[in-house]
Amino acid sequence: MSRISQTIAALRSAQRKVLVPYLVAGDPDKGTTVVLMHALVEAGADIIELGVPFSDPSSDGTVIQLGAERALRQGTTLHDVLDIVRQFREVDTRTPIVLMGYLNPVEIMGYEAFASDAQAAGADGVLIVDMPAYECEDLFRAVRPRGLDTVFLVAPTTTEARLASICAHSTGYLYYVSLKGVTGAAIKDKGDIKGKIEHLRTITDLPVIVGFGIKDAQSAVDMAVISDGVIVGSALVDRISHLRSGETYSQAALADTVAVISSIRQAIENIK
C-alpha cells in the first residue's frame, strides 16, 4: 500500500477527514517552502500537494498564478522542487507528498529522469493537471513501477466515458474539482457537488477529496461532509504571498501564516 493509501485508510478508520494543503514550491523561496511544509503538518495537514511552478498555469486563478510567478522569479525549477521534497524528508518520513503541476516541465526533464528523482527524493504521487488520462501511457511507464500514485482531476463537466477512464488510471485518491473554473474561484453549487460525488462512489472505491474554492472553515465543512476530505490551495497561497524571500520566520509567524489550515482542521475534526 502506498504512503498515500495508508494515510487515507488510517484516517477513514478513525472516521476523520483528509486535509490536504497546497502551496507553490519556491514561494517565496526554497527554504521557506520546507519550513512551511513542516508548519502545515503541525497545523494538521495529512497530505501535502506541492505545486511545481509553471509559466502558463491555465487552470489557476490569480492567487496561485502570482505564487508561481514569485517562485519562478527565484529561478525555481523542477529539480529544486525535488530538492525541497528531499529536505522535507530529512525530518518527516510520514506525510505523503503529491507533486502537482503541468506536464511541460516533466516532459522536458524526461519521464524516466523525473520518476527516478521523484522516487529517490521521497515524493508519493503526481498530479499533472493538463495531462488527460488517455495520454498517460508514457508517464505511467516511468512512475508506476516506482510506486508513485497517479492522481487525476474530475470536474463537474467530466463525461461518463472520461470518468471511467480517469477512475481506471487513478490511484491514491480522486481530486474532485468543486466548480467550473479555476483555483481560487467561489463554490456556487453545493447540491450539485453532493450528487456528483454520490455518483462517483458508484463507480469507484477511491477516496474522493474535494478541491478548488475551499477557503475557510465553513466552505471546508460544507465539502468535507459530502466527501473524504478537502484540499486548500489559494487561501493558503494568499497568506504566503505576505512572506518575503530571504527572511527567516519564527515558529509563531509560520503558524500564523498557516492558520487557515489549523482552523479548517479544527472545523472538520468532528465530521464523520
Binding site: S55, L78, N104, I108
Partner: peptide, 8 residues
C-alpha cells in the same frame, strides 16, 4: 519555445 526547465 521552451527553456531547459520546461518554462515557456
Amino acid at each position: 519555445m521552451t527553456d531547459d526547465a520546461g518554462q515557456i
